[in-house]
Design a binder for these strands. Structure first.
Length: 134
DNA sequence: GCCAACGTTGGC
DNA sequence: GCCAACGTTGGC
């Protein structure tokens, strides 16, 4: 059981879009490190959805419902997974909050902002959940 | 819109 | 295989 952060630009695909679609194919990843992470995802793994550029905040939680398969948007060797929304965070957790937070300031989202799929610890996940309820 | 950080590409 | 040039991402 692993936790992840999935980053998306909300004007391209937002958490609201995910809620509306119910199931989304998480495709378009074109980064080897991110691909590696995608392929490590297991059924039932949990992902924080983070909005980059616009908002710059964690907005919701999703679950992996289909393991990595061929990205349908390309013939090249890239992977996609399917996710469903679990819950919308009551209060989004901003990047600024995470940077200031003792626990979260070292997560890869903060340290390596370009990586679109990255693992986080259960502890980090719980911390984000806690912050979203304050 | 700018720039820093990072990844990728291509010439040697 | 190295490294400079270039492209992309994302925060500010």
């Amino acid at each position: 059981m692993q936790y992840w952060i999935l980053k998306t630009e909300p004007d391209v695909f937002s958490f609201e879009d995910l809620i509306n679609k119910k199931t989304a194919c998480w495709d378009g990843v074109r980064n080897y490190q991110a691909r590696k992470n995608l392929r490590l995802m297991e059924l039932g793994d949990i992902a924080i959805i983070y909005h980059s550029n616009i908002g710059k905040e964690a907005v919701g939680i999703a679950k992996v419902v289909k393991k990595a398969y061929q990205d349908p948007t390309t013939k090249q060797d890239w992977s996609a997974v399917d996710v469903v929304p679990i819950e919308k965070l009551k209060k989004p957790v901003s990047l600024e909050q995470m940077k200031k937070d003792k626990i979260l300031k070292n997560i890869s989202l903060v340290r390596q902002s370009r990586l679109s799929v990255s693992p986080i610890s259960k502890n980090d996940f719980e911390r984000i959940k806690t912050l979203s309820k304050i």
